[in-house]
Design a binder for these strands. Structure first.
Lengths: 222, 222
DNA sequence: CTGAAAACAAGAGCAGTGCTCACTTTTGTT
DNA sequence: AACAAAAGTGAGCACTGCTCTTGTTTTCAG
């Protein structure tokens, strides 16, 4: 049986409708195009009415950011279930960024001015992929050790302290070399996708984005 | 003798004043805080008056973007004259990003919504550092070859076509391995700085940013 | 079934933005 | 002194987020 009153159901529906419209607005015009007044118009309601459902534009932003993080992390999980490799992870992120470039910018681009992500709301979904990558790197390193190759990172381990603590909070304990390897691969992936999405390399990369990513990942795998 | 009339001089002064205020506003509140009306107030003039000096907010943005690109590229050039290495290049960019985080976001972050960089205006200063990096990589690769180490990148060279063409326009002709190496290092640098500046790794990195960059660069140097 | 309470919606209003346009004042030159 | 160009003015348009007061439903308990 259904324990939701019609009222509650209507509320949830409207909330879902708002986030849906919000997502579409971001897809269409970027985060700057996200307007509560425009949402109100589309809902056929006066502008102040949407404030019954969402406290502020920032709150809606938080919801949309969390959604985007969750979506891309889910996509990566699905793809990794098929083929577990760093390349798959990277190419899946790239593919998602092409499908939703403005959502990509929302989560991996410049922070929104005057907006502070509520940390507890967004940090967890926001770090999922990186944690997955660390696990992947750990697996591969373990394999490499069996075949006799040992990574030799011996720089100042203090540099990794903040990240190591973050992983420890999740109950994970990796060595410095694994963390260093993870962060290197991670920043390369993000950097490449950002460069492509933000047009920093100029035009003409449409057909070679995947190959470029594959090349970078291959280069990082020594 | 001076061939500028007092009138022309006043104009140039006001223009310089406007870009100076604009830079300060971006430093203070990010690109969203760049307001022509606020600039007018600070100039002690009515809002419509600034349109005598700047065609639109976007035009001012273009000026500030070009300035920022030029500034960071100059900083890199100066540092490289002291010590010519990839690490120096990377650390200089990192240092600049710490000094001017909002300007960094302006040039390497999410593109401004509804704003299209005029290409001819910004592309040249925007690619200076990357071109410098390519030259650096080429030098180092040449050194490595003398000592017998040869890089072996042999993936689909088509992926590099757009970049190779970009370099050829500047009269530069590098091999695929050098271009691939350059782009890998480049995206790692940008990715790491973006991650740090945009707070994607969480807090607590303030004292280890340099070590982190050094570690990544070292890892990329095999 | 009725009446109070809670939820929802309306509409005016505030302060801010970029930008335009008709108009006046200042300035430099002939 | 006359005149044209440049600079500055102020009103106005359309938009934004957000608040506050008023009115209207809908829900739910007595």
């Amino acid at each position: 049986m259904d324990h939701t009153t019609p009222r509650q159901r209507a509320r949830l529906e409207t909330e879902a409708h708002i986030t849906q419209i919000g997502n579409r607005m971001i897809d269409d015009e970027g985060v700057a195009g996200l307007s509560l007044r425009a949402i109100a118009r589309e809902l056929g309601v006066v502008s102040s009415a949407v404030y019954r459902y969402v406290q502020s534009r920032d709150e809606l932003l938080t919801i949309l950011i969390r959604d985007a993080f969750t979506q891309i992390a889910d996509a990566v999980d699905v793809a990794l279930a098929e083929e577990r490799s760093v390349e798959t992870l990277a190419l899946t992120m790239l593919k998602w960024s092409r499908a939703y470039p403005n959502r990509w910018a929302l989560i991996y681009g410049t922070p929104i001015a005057g907006y502070e992500a509520p940390h507890e709301e967004t940090t967890v979904p926001g770090t999922r992929i990186m944690v997955t990558l660390a696990a992947l790197v750990a697996e591969l390193t373990a394999d490499a050790e069996e075949t006799g190759q040992k990574s030799a990172y011996s720089a100042d381990g203090n540099a990794l302290t903040p990240l190591r603590e973050g992983l420890e909070e999740l109950g994970l304990d990796y060595g410095d070399d694994i963390i260093m390897e993870t962060i290197t691969i991670w920043v390369a992936i993000i950097g490449l996708i950002n460069g492509l999405r933000f047009g920093q390399f100029g035009p003409g990369y449409d057909d070679v984005e995947g190959d470029l990513m594959t090349g970078v990942i291959a280069r990082l795998g020594e």
